[in-house]
């Protein structure tokens, strides 16, 4: 049986997290969010992108009490905090971007004021370049 050894110390990659599903209807949004938090624990670069119904994940004002599910939207605040931390602290080598696709926003009659975290609103073409330049894409 062959043994594999992976040298992970100091490895830095750029991850793109492509969120395309609304929260609560399926498990995708929560699973991707957990993966984002894990990437923070390993100080990796991350583009957290919200496209299509994924934009509803970060909409402010979610209240899940009556559907008997945990409201995980407050947890997106961690992404914002990690991003601010990484931006301010020179010891943290981590570039994080929180991005929303303009076309998806416009299609749903939303603006960036509808969100609970601050985001960059970029066009599909701009996002295409960012995705193409990343080392790993995790989608849901």
């Amino acid at each position: 049986m062959a043994e594999f050894e992976f040298e992970t110390e100091g490895v830095k990659k750029t991850f793109t997290f492509m969120n395309r599903k609304a929260p609560y209807g399926t498990i995708y949004a929560l699973e991707v969010l957990e993966t984002v938090l894990i990437s923070a624990a390993f100080e990796q670069h991350a583009n957290i992108i919200f496209v299509d119904d994924g934009v509803y994940q970060i909409k402010a004002g979610q209240d899940t009490t009556a559907i008997n599910m945990k409201n995980f939207s407050p947890t997106y605040g961690i992404i914002e905090m990690e991003k601010e931390d990484a931006d301010e602290d020179d010891d943290i080598d981590m570039v994080w971007r929180i991005i929303v696709e303009k076309e998806s926003l416009d299609a749903r009659g939303l603006t960036e004021d509808d969100f609970k975290v601050s985001v960059e609103v970029l066009s599909a073409a701009e996002i295409a370049d960012i995705v193409d330049a990343s080392d790993c894409v995790i989608s849901g």
Partner: peptide, 10 residues
């Protein structure tokens, strides 16, 4: 209370 999960040890 703020984020609905426990923080990373870091």
């Amino acid at each position: 209370n703020e984020y609905q999960i426990a923080p990373a040890v870091r």
